[in-house]
Amino acid sequence: MLFVTVYATQFLLTASLGVIFAYLADLQDRYDLTNLELGTIAAVGFIAGLVSQLLLSPLVDRGHHRAVVWVSVLSAVAGAFGFVLADSTWSLVTSRALAGVSFGLFGLVARKALIGHDISGSGSKVGGLLSFGVAGFVSGPFIGAALSGVSFEAPFLVTGTVMALLGPFAAILISNSPIAGTAVDYSDLLILLRRPRVQAAILVHVGVWGLVGMFDATVDRYLTDLGLSSTEFAIGLLILGIPFMLLPPHAGALAERLGGGRVAVPALVLFAPAVVLYGWVGGLWTFIAIGVAEAITESYSEMGAQVLVLEATGVEQAAMGTGVLEAIGLAMAAVAAFAGPSLYGQFGPRWLFGVWGVVCLVLSGIVMLRLKAVKIPPKGITLSH
């Protein structure tokens, strides 16, 4: 019951984010937003997730997961209904921030509850959470398209209502789940950051989440400028999401078996040219072909990075380790999302995605150097040093 409810809630949370993501161009046109205002709305969700994860992840490892999961659920409901009531840039920013808090914190407590007291099998469990999250995200545009004929606010009203019904049930189950609590404090974050595996995982996340932020903030505008309709965009995004839905459990299990670094490094090397090719999209089918290649490499990069962190933390500090990893990824996404619309408008997609692809290739080289500082064991999740 825990797995089903947690995965369903993660699906719903990210579906509501997917609605927002697909509505960015509509928000800009509806409220006459500048590129700077649009970038702010896109970025603030990542920033809110970053801050909440850094502040609260040690509390989850100390056993205070009950309070954190309720904050997540209530923020999700408030964020969804905030978009129903929003009438200004700042109310949109606030609603997006609440959605970001919810997304960041729910993943934190969900991973801790799913892992429980046994670190073995964590790769596939965490991969399953990612699969359902992506499935929800790519379903968001379809929810928006199906309900937009009723009104602009209808998709947010529906997702907020369903979350108000399902969220408390998930919060109760997570609150009653056994977790591995340990005495940690904020100084332990600095200790984690000095571990080569964690540093390598962070660099992988910087590359992946830099693209996520850039993609989030610009792709709706980009494809609209190419002449694609909202329906075509939704179809393309759904097809792109298929690898994310299917591969993360397998990628997580593979990383757990071989070692996170042995999966993350080659995946990030292959991820870089896929990012570059995003700048050369000419229509729906090239968008789909490039996007599927990028989604496959991103799935393995992401799960390799998460297993690298679990190798370093073990079960006791899993929330803090994955929280730091995602917080830094969210920080990178926030910067990319904030700058993305302006850079897209000034330089165009080829420079925007091309430069980031080169950055990812450089990061893969640095990751390899950091992993030389440790001996990676044959099985991934066995050590905590």
Rank of each mutant, 00 (worst) to 15 (best):
residue 295 A to L: 13
residue 276 V to T: 05
residue 65 H to S: 05
residue 310 L to T: 02
residue 73 V to H: 06
residue 287 F to G: 01
residue 300 Y to V: 00
residue 54 L to Q: 10
residue 98 L to I: 09
residue 243 P to D: 13
residue 301 S to A: 15
residue 167 G to A: 05
residue 170 A to K: 04
residue 332 M to Q: 10
residue 355 V to Y: 02
residue 107 G to Y: 07
residue 320 M to I: 13
residue 265 V to Y: 11
residue 112 K to D: 10
residue 56 L to S: 08
residue 137 F to R: 06
residue 370 R to K: 15
residue 133 G to S: 14
residue 258 L to P: 00
residue 44 V to F: 04
residue 357 G to F: 09
residue 259 G to A: 10
residue 35 N to R: 01
residue 299 S to I: 12
residue 29 D to L: 08
residue 195 R to G: 04
residue 40 T to K: 07
residue 115 I to G: 00
residue 57 S to Y: 14
residue 351 W to G: 07
residue 256 E to P: 00
residue 202 I to Q: 00
residue 194 R to N: 01
residue 91 S to W: 15
residue 69 V to R: 06
residue 119 I to Y: 15
residue 235 I to R: 01
residue 134 V to R: 12
residue 47 I to E: 11
residue 307 V to F: 00
residue 351 W to K: 03
residue 368 M to P: 02
residue 179 I to G: 10
residue 60 V to W: 09
residue 349 P to L: 03
residue 68 V to Y: 09
residue 131 S to Q: 03
residue 227 G to V: 07
residue 82 G to D: 06
residue 38 L to G: 04
residue 295 A to Q: 11
residue 227 G to E: 03
residue 110 A to F: 09
residue 158 V to D: 02
residue 83 F to Y: 10
residue 168 P to V: 12
residue 109 V to I: 08
residue 125 K to V: 14
residue 232 E to Y: 08
residue 21 F to P: 00
residue 174 I to P: 01
residue 115 I to Y: 13
residue 146 A to H: 11
residue 16 S to N: 10
residue 211 L to Y: 09
residue 120 S to G: 10
residue 251 A to T: 08
residue 300 Y to D: 01
residue 8 A to H: 05
residue 213 G to M: 03
residue 235 I to Q: 11
residue 45 G to F: 07
residue 254 L to W: 03
residue 319 A to K: 01
residue 98 L to D: 02
residue 40 T to H: 04
residue 47 I to P: 13
residue 24 L to Q: 12
residue 15 A to V: 07
residue 213 G to L: 05
residue 151 S to I: 07
residue 110 A to P: 03
residue 116 G to V: 05
residue 335 V to D: 00
residue 168 P to H: 15
residue 45 G to M: 09
residue 353 F to W: 04
residue 225 D to L: 04
residue 238 L to I: 01
residue 91 S to E: 13
residue 55 L to I: 12
residue 256 E to R: 02
residue 287 F to I: 03
residue 367 V to E: 11
residue 126 V to M: 13
residue 4 V to T: 15
residue 301 S to E: 12
residue 52 S to N: 03
residue 265 V to P: 14
residue 128 G to I: 06
residue 92 L to M: 15
residue 336 A to N: 11
residue 20 I to F: 12
residue 382 T to G: 10
residue 45 G to P: 05
residue 126 V to K: 00
residue 325 L to K: 00
residue 144 G to D: 07
residue 168 P to G: 05
